[in-house]
Every structure is written in structure tokens, then in C-alpha cells.
Simulated scan of single mutants.
Amino acid sequence: MIVDAGVHLWEPESPERSWPPGREAPQRAEPFGADEMLGIMDAHGVDRAIIVPPIWIGEDNTDALAWARKLPERFAVMGRMPFASEFAGALATWLDEPGMLGLRLSYPASVYGDWLDHERTRWFWDAAEASRVPLMILCQNQASRIDPIARAHPGLPIILDHVALRNVRVEREAGRNADPAERIADVIALARHPQVFVKFSSLPYYSAEPYPYRDLDGVLERVVDAFGVDRIMWASDLSRMSLMRRPPSYSEILGHVRDGMPFLSPHERAAILGDNALRILGWTV
């Protein structure tokens, strides 16, 4: 089974459901809904996808959960919630919502401040651990900041989105040399925490080469060696590819794991492409 463990899907903004100010712009001009994603999945043999409501629509899981309820064998959700202490109580029943697998953390600092400051925001990490809510965390180039969280909360499943690589697209397009793996040692160091996992997502975004992105082989093999193949899952992050000067096809994003990465065995490819996400996130439908 193949599971795309992270796609942003959204409906257009409307007067009834306006988006909050001060967020990043949508990753593409057109809305990206479930029907379009289903067509892509069916064309490429992808069985399931995990919807991550995008940051620009705010902390709103309405559409994502509706899609998951309609097609529970195809879609599930890593939802969003306001990062404020008055909402901590919601975590106790967060996973009771049909289709909800956990939380995705990515917040504008202008709205929520430094939400990776463990001591200041311990109320959140304590509550998430108490209910064992899996977290997908956007912490690009900040993997070292996850270490105190992981040390203090050994029962909290943490998934590092995009391998916690540095966001280098704008710098590279401006002609500046930028290494997305400049702090990969901080990512590798987190392998000592058994509840920390890695998502191989948005990978073409970090390559300076065309498909099959062989310049990423060395760093990705180091991650596999450190964490073990059973702690890694794959996701396309398809809408983000629209930001690239030469966006890859879905076939290339999927083929990077399915057919590339020569250091992986067929069994390891299957684990990364689906088995691990189902197990780690408890998607049992």
C-alpha cells in the first residue's frame, strides 16, 4: 500500500469562511481539492493520502475532516489547532474525531510567537504527550530545538517534516549557493529518541539536480542509517512543488523513493512508501 503522508488540500476562500490575515500566500493560485487529489492518486497507484490543512486557511479542519469522513479508506487528517493554552484541553479528545490522526505544527511567529520554545510552551507538549497525539512539526533548520522537547516527552510521537532541511529555494533561485543539509547533524542526533520519526517529504524542493535527485542520496542514506527504515515515511507535499521554477511531476516525486535511492531494498521502499505511516499514525481503516 502506498500512502502519501502529507498533502495540502483546500477550498477557495469565501465571505463565509475568510482566511486570517498575516499568513503566507497559497502555494498555487487555484484551490486544490479532494477530487483533484483522488485523480492524481488513482493515476499513480497511490492508495491513501493524509490531508494537512494549509497554514494560509488558518486553524480550520472543516473541509479536511469532511473529505475524510466521506472517503475514510482514502483520506485521513493531521489537523491544526490554535497554539494557545486555552485550547490545550482539546487535545484530550483530539483523536476521537473520525479521520483525525494527529496535529501538524506550523505557525507564523507573528501570531503565536516562538512556539518551539519548550519552556515557554510546555503546556502544549505536556498535553499532547498525555493524550499521545502524534505531531508533524515544521522545524526547518531547527532540529536542535526538538531535542529538549523529545527528552522531556518520551511518550510523544514527533515527525520531522521535510527531514527538517533548510529552506533553500529562494536563495538558490537568486543564484546564491545554499546547502539544505547544513545542519543535518542535528537531525541525526535526534535518532537517539525512539519516538522521533522523519518524513521524506518535499524532497525535490531541496535538490539542485533534475530527477532522480541523486545529489540527495548521501544525506538521505545517512538519515536512514541513523533512524532505521521503520521510522521514515514518504509524502509528496505536492502543492509546494508549484513554488519551484521547474515543478516536478507527481510521477517523479513518487518515483524518487519507488525507483530511486539505490541504497534502499524493495522491502525498505515499501515500508517508507506506506507501511510506516499506517503503523506510526495508527491509520487502521
Rank of each mutant, 00 (worst) to 15 (best):
Y112H: 12
D126E: 15
L103C: 10
N141G: 08
E129D: 07
A130I: 07
D114S: 00
A109K: 15
A127N: 08
A127M: 10
D126T: 15
G99Q: 05
W125E: 04
W115F: 11
L135I: 14
F124G: 04
A143E: 07
M100L: 12
L116Q: 12
L105W: 12
F124D: 00
L101Q: 11
M136S: 09
R120M: 00
E129S: 09
D126M: 06
G113K: 02
A128V: 11
E119Q: 06
R132A: 15
D114L: 01
S144Q: 07
M136E: 08
W115T: 11
L138A: 04
Q140S: 02
R122F: 00
V133C: 14
R120Q: 03
Y107D: 02
L135V: 14
L103G: 10
G113M: 00
A130N: 08
S131P: 12
T121N: 14
Q140D: 08
Q142I: 01
L135H: 06
S131W: 08
P98G: 02
S106L: 03
E129R: 13
F124Y: 06
W123F: 02
Y107I: 08
T121F: 06
A128Q: 11
E119R: 07
P134L: 10
V133K: 12
M136Q: 12
Y112V: 05
G102K: 08
S131I: 07
P98K: 06
Y112C: 03
L103A: 13
A109Q: 14
A143N: 08
D117I: 02
G102Y: 03
F124V: 06
V133T: 15
W115G: 00
R145T: 08
G102C: 09
L105V: 13
Q140K: 03
Q140C: 03
E129C: 02
I137Q: 04
G102A: 04
S110R: 14
S110F: 09
A109C: 06
L116W: 06
Y112D: 02
G113P: 02
Y112K: 04
P134Q: 10
T121M: 00
D114Y: 04
L135T: 11
A143T: 05
M136V: 03
Y112T: 04
A143R: 03
R145G: 07
Y112A: 05
P134K: 10
P98A: 01
Y112F: 14
M100P: 08
L105S: 05
W115Q: 01
R145M: 11
H118E: 15
F124Q: 03
E129I: 02
L101G: 13
M100N: 11
W125Y: 11
A130F: 05
L105D: 06
G113Q: 02
Y112R: 04
P108L: 13
P108K: 14
S131Q: 13
L105Y: 10
L138Y: 07
V133R: 14
L135Y: 05
L135W: 08
L103S: 13
L116E: 07
R132H: 15
S110H: 10
D117K: 01
R104W: 01
S106R: 13
D117Q: 03
Q142M: 08
C139H: 10
I137H: 10
E129A: 13
C139K: 00
A128T: 11
M136Y: 00
M136D: 09
T121C: 04
C139G: 08
C139D: 09
S106M: 04
S131C: 12
S131E: 10
L138E: 01
D114K: 01
S131A: 15
R145S: 06
R104C: 03
S144V: 13
E119I: 09
